[in-house]
């Protein structure tokens, strides 16, 4: 494998990390919660797609659409049931609840579909020849879809009314409410949007790795979260940048150093960045008030 191939691989996995990291960063920006259940949403999305396609025989586009809607609703329901009652309490209780939700989803899926890994069929078969290089179709689709979604998301946040509301709520919840913004709706929408992106990330992940299991969400979620922190949590362009950095670093480590040490190197990069610039690469430093 040439170095260019490794980088393409890195961009492919990196764009999946970036999509998931967007969900983390939006939720963190708005409710200051590390949503540990986000990784599990990817897992649920994967199982939904697998079930509708291989058991119910649905066409791929319907399965993907179904997964997006299902995950978005699931994300909103989780927020309403588990996080909303705790919004005004200590953040650590919220964090523990998020961990509880993530445990619950993992074990519920394990109960229904058993712990054995399931094989996922390749949705995007074939390959693409371009200038003497061969790219797998799933890599091309993953990168193109992710880039379109990222551009769409940043347009949504910058130019629409709901995007403005999201920015206002993440800046100051109380003031936003005084300005006539429905804070509950905005938070709900953010969870739905993040979870929908996670569902698309799930489909893209499955089409490149062909295998799903109930615990697949935790490590994927953790790395995406690392990506979000690396880029500067709360910042959308930071999440994208962080995703690509983590993806490429991981792919190059696997290719040239050792695949066993890839996770350690990913976390090592995070630690170095946090020590040098605690707010992340593109994050704004927070001032401390007495």
């Amino acid at each position: 494998m040439t170095i260019l191939n490794q980088i393409i691989n890195g961009i492919q996995i990196g764009s999946i990390y970036a999509l998931v990291a967007l969900g983390y960063t939006m939720v963190y920006g708005i409710v200051k919660l590390i949503n540990f259940a986000h990784g599990e949403i990817i897992m649920v999305g994967s199982y939904f797609t697998w079930y509708t396609m291989s058991r119910l025989g649905a066409p791929a586009w319907a399965a993907v659409l179904g997964a997006v809607v299902f995950c978005a609703v699931l994300g909103m329901v989780i927020e309403k049931v588990a996080y909303k009652p705790l919004r005004n309490y200590a953040r650590i209780s919220l964090l523990i609840t998020a961990i509880g939700v993530s445990f619950f989803l993992q074990n519920a899926v394990q109960l229904i579909f058993k712990a054995t890994p399931r094989m996922f069929q390749n949705i995007f078969p074939g390959s693409l020849k371009l200038g003497g290089m061969v790219f797998s179709m799933s890599a091309v689709v993953t990168i193109v879809v992710s880039v379109i979604l990222m551009i769409g998301l940043s347009l949504l946040v910058k130019n629409t009314k709901i995007g403005k509301a999201m920015r206002a709520v993440s800046e100051d919840k109380d003031t936003a409410q005084l300005m006539g913004i429905n804070v509950d709706h905005t938070i709900s929408f953010t969870f739905g949007l993040g979870s929908g992106l996670a569902a698309i990330a799930a489909v893209l992940y499955c089409s490149s790795f062909y295998q799903i299991e109930p615990t697949m969400g935790s490590m994927l979620g953790l790395k995406a979260f690392v990506a979000a922190v690396l880029g500067g949590i709360g910042s959308i362009s930071g999440a994208v940048l962080g995703g690509f950095v983590i993806g490429i670093a991981e792919s190059l480590t696997k290719g040239y150093i050792s695949s066993a040490l890839a996770d350690a190197i990913v976390f090592g990069i995070l630690i170095v960045v946090l020590i040098i610039k605690p707010s992340g690469i593109l994050g704004r430093p927070e001032n401390e008030k007495v």
Binding site: L222, F225, L274
Partner: peptide, 20 residues
């Protein structure tokens, strides 16, 4: 040197590095 959530993340990172 970091606080709150950042401390949580960095200790999480160190924990994983120790394991690897």
């Amino acid at each position: 040197r970091l606080r709150g959530d950042y401390l949580a993340i960095i200790t999480l990172g160190f924990g994983e590095i120790i394991r690897v």
